[in-house]
């Protein structure tokens, strides 16, 4: 399968994460090269954050992780001790968490939280670390660094907090950045600036970026490769042009239809949406997780669904043939 790349910065094979009575991630594989942006999209609750947290080994209590491997370059992260992981986290591998408020300590100032990361990995003085922090705040468009570094998280607006998290993740020039919905709290002009900064790091420093987002505008303009998740599985994966030009899984197609398009979607008319909700996946679940909501489901969809090749490095997990849209209803 083309998903295994010999020189990948990150390679995840057959990742599974379960909670008591539910399976959150069911056999996810993906790989990411140096200088590549790989976007992960999918409905709320489909396992995107849990997959990302698995790489960092920061899963919530009660979660059980297993995989064939989770490799960072040639090192298997599965076998690493907590001390070895701690040395990588925030240094060579950084993560921007989805909820800044839960990952920031409300009792410490922005400055001391940012400086702490740098001091730990680079053994610098507080002064040097604060200078570095001020430099990165400027790069994410935050002015008055003196004032900002002295503030507590609750004194920042949602977007300032999110940019602070981004700056913090970039403190040690990571090789791999896992960004979980990093721009949801930002207006579009600041978002564009942050994305241009990440693009620059990708081009100039070879940053590998695993970008979780629900914004197809970001996917289209940032990704080289896209993985679409549904109910704990990657249901479609391919080069970005393919995903937009020839979405093959019915879920991907439904998702693309939900986007309000300025000038096309009529004000006052309901937006397109996919009726129903993501099912709760109990252990032992078989078949396509989307079948309850899929208008094209048949009895076949309740059986084990293998990954199919649509050509051009494009894969999907559905009973339908790759060209089903062109033909009459199969």
């Amino acid at each position: 399968m083309a998903l295994v790349m010999p020189n990948a910065v990150l390679s995840i094979a057959n990742l599974r994460v379960s909670f008591p009575r539910m399976e959150a991630v069911r056999g996810v594989s993906l790989a990411l090269n140096r200088g590549e942006v790989h976007c992960v999209v999918g409905e709320s609750g489909c396992g995107k954050s849990i997959s990302a947290l698995s790489v960092m080994n920061l899963l919530p209590r009660g979660a059980v992780r297993s995989a064939d491997h989770i490799r960072f370059h040639e090192h298997d992260l599965l076998g690493m001790s907590e001390r070895q992981m701690a040395r990588l986290r925030g240094d060579k591998i950084a993560m921007i968490f989805q909820e800044p408020m839960t990952s920031l300590n409300p009792a410490y100032t922005v400055g001391s939280q940012m400086a702490e990361v740098f001091e730990r990995h680079r053994r610098t003085t507080r002064r040097q670390a604060l200078d570095r922090a001020a430099e990165l705040l400027a790069r994410v468009g935050i002015t008055a660094p003196g004032m900002r570094l002295a503030q507590y998280p609750h004194q920042l607006s949602g977007g300032l907090r999110q940019r602070m998290m981004i700056a913090m993740a970039l403190m040690c020039d990571p090789e791999l950045l896992i960004a979980d919905e990093p721009t949801t709290a930002l207006d579009v002009t600041v978002q564009a600036q942050i994305l241009r900064l990440l693009h620059k790091l990708q081009q100039e420093m070879g940053l590998a970026l695993l970008l979780i987002t629900h914004d197809f505008g970001i996917v289209a303009r940032m990704a080289q490769r896209v993985s679409v998740m549904y109910a704990g599985e990657v249901v479609e994966s391919g080069p970005v042009e393919q995903i937009f030009k020839a979405p093959t899984h019915p879920y991907t197609r439904g998702l693309l239809d939900c986007i309000p398009v300025p000038g096309v979607t009529k004000a006052g008319e309901p937006l397109g949406s996919i009726p129903g909700v993501v099912p709760r996946i109990a252990p032992g679940f078989l078949g396509c997780g989307f079948r309850d909501r899929c208008t094209l489901a048949t009895a076949e969809c309740a059986e084990t669904m293998r990954l199919r090749d649509a050509g051009a490095d494009h894969f999907y997990r559905c009973r339908l043939p790759p060209n089903w849209k062109q033909g009459t209803a199969p």
Binding site: A138, G141, I142, T143, V188, T189, Q191, A192, Q193, L195, R196, H199, D215, F216, G217, I218, V219, A220, R221, M222, A223, V240, E241, F244, L256, I259, V261, P262
Partner: peptide
């Protein structure tokens, strides 16, 4: 600055510069 889902385009630079207020 709105990002329409068009993979042929990159992230626009709307020339606001970096002189954040």
């Amino acid at each position: 600055s709105v990002l329409t889902p068009d993979p042929a385009l990159g992230v626009p630079d709307v020339a606001l510069g970096d002189a954040y207020p």
